[in-house]
Design a protein around this nucleic acid. Structure first.
Length: 437
RNA sequence: GCGGAUGUAGCUCAGUUGGUUAGAGCGCUGGAUUGUGGCUCCGGAGGCCGUGGGUUCAAGUCCCAUCAUUCGCCCCA
């Protein structure tokens, strides 16, 4: 059997047109987060298994990561997320860093599971984190960053919804208000996470099953179901509404609205899967009818840095996968047609290769990206190659051009051809590059 | 890990109740005055019909397995 040309299951090849798109997307993302003062960091793709076991130790590590033994017998994981890694880095230099710390990264991450829409085994994920700030202004800022990114892509607020909730508030509801045990709370949390995509009757049946008979008698299960239908903090029962975490959440929503992020809502079903969240959690939902899903999420996780045996550092951050971002942008038609980096494709007319070198060198020294057709084919074939590559300009070099030092340059999209000097041609292609970047 | 759908040329697909050497469009490639693309005309390459078994005189077609793709579930970084 022949060798397969397809990439590894759930992973992608980035052909030049794909890489071009990725560079465009990440370029806008980097530019935006850097405007908020975030600094880029990176780390090895491999981490010791213990790093993840310390954090959770559940199914995610055992069944959904790439784990192997290195030649020295150490258990190694291909990183499935960046949060433990960045927590490790902060813990390592906690005393010399200038807080509040604003860091970002776009690592390539791997998880072992069955691929589906918006979820591959391999993806790139923007991680934006603020370390060292207890105040809710940190949550506020990270949501502003996420919103600013979408704005830079041309998205408007009707295209997505910012959903916020609080783990602290949910803990209070589960334990104090409903009187659930820790185990019951965890079961309820997972069930609530699934609620948006299951029928109400089914949800009610499963919710009932979590409660003990005596709890059901006091109406605790009905109280839970009633709470989950609430869409505004002001509609929560007074005992819940007056809790500190509910007030904080309410203030966050007000601040965001004042900052013209009008598409923010309280959503009690937003839980986030990880146990490490300790406070406010949030998600951005795509409002597109055919892609109605969470495209990114994050929140406060104050305990992770402290796992490294140092004083804890309060942290807020989010992760945003390139696949879900791209699905969003495609769904709302926000991705332009991105041309290759090559500005000029040189078409050689006749046996002129050697004589053309000087001109080509001049073009490059002046900053133009120039590809030369070295096939020796007839001009029409050379032009077609340029068109197929998507290069904007074809430049013709023959005996006459060399003699006159004027070269025909043709815009391959409009078909307009003019004769210009080398320096004029460079300024034309640079102008075009400016226009489209 | 569980369930459904789909695998024929680079792409989109046709291929009768099993029956000669498997087809189309687009794309690719060569040519139609060797200094200029997109239209037109003529020629050409390209397929172990996903893979492996089975049934049959005969399998692209029927059966089983397997792999891949895809949609959902579980789970969610």
């Amino acid at each position: 059997m022949a060798l397969a040309t397809q990439p590894y299951k759930g992973a992608r090849d980035f052909y030049p047109e794909d890489k071009r798109l990725q560079k465009y997307m990440f370029g806008i993302v980097r530019d935006t987060v850097e405007r908020f003062g975030y600094e880029e960091y990176d780390a090895p793709i491999l981490e010791p298994l213990e790093l993840y076991l310390a954090k959770t130790g559940d199914e995610i590590v055992n069944e959904q990561t790439y784990v192997f033994e290195d030649r020295g017998g150490r258990k190694v994981v291909i990183r499935p997320e960046m949060t433990p890694t960045v927590s490790r880095m902060v813990a390592g230099r906690r005393q010399e860093l200038a807080y509040p710390l604003r860091w970002y990264s776009i690592p390539n991450l791997w998880r072992y599971e069955r691929p589906q829409r918006g979820r591959l085994r391999e993806h790139w994920q923007l991680n934006v984190d603020i370390f060292g700030e207890h105040d809710m202004k940190a949550e506020m800022e990270t949501i502003q960053v996420a919103d600013a990114i979408l704005k830079r892509f041309g998205a408007t607020h009707d295209m997505y919804t910012v959903k916020v909730n609080s783990r602290k508030l949910m803990d209070f509801i589960m334990k104090e208000y409903l009187g659930l045990s820790t185990v019951q709370s965890q079961m309820a949390a997972k069930l609530i996470d699934r609620m948006p995509k299951m029928p109400l009757a089914e949800f009610q049946a499963e919710a009932e099953a979590i409660f003990t008979p005596s709890q059901r008698e006091t109406g605790a299960s009905n109280k839970l179901i009633g709470l989950l239908k609430i869409k505004q903090i002001s509609h929560l029962p007074e005992a819940v509404r007056e809790h500190e975490s509910a007030k904080e959440l309410k203030l966050l929503i007000e601040l965001l609205k004042d900052a013209r992020i009008s598409n923010v809502v309280f959503d009690i079903t937003v839980m986030r899967g990880f146990d490490y969240y300790t406070g406010i959690v949030f998600e951005l939902f795509d409002n597109h009818p055919e892609n109605n899903r969470s495209m990114m999420g994050g929140g406060r996780y104050d305990g992770l840095v402290g796992l490294f045996g140092v004083e804890s550092v309060p942290t807020v951050g989010f992760g945003w996968g390139d696949v879900t971002l791209q699905n969003f942008l495609e769904g709302h038609d926000l991705l332009p047609n991105i041309r290759p980096e090559t500005d000029v494709y040189v078409v050689l007319i006749g046996d002129i290769y050697a004589k053309a070198q000087k001109v080509i060198e001049d073009l490059r020294e002046m900053g133009a990206n120039v590809a030369v057709d070295i096939s020796g084919r007839k001009a029409d074939k050379q032009i077609q190659t340029a068109v197929k590559k998507g290069v904007r300009y074809a430049m013709f070099i023959g005996e006459n051009e060399i003699k006159e030092e004027l070269y025909e340059v043709r815009n391959l999209v409009t078909g307009v051809a003019e004769r210009h000097s080398v320096s004029r041609i460079v300024s034309i292609v640079k102008d075009y590059r400016e226009e489209t970047s």
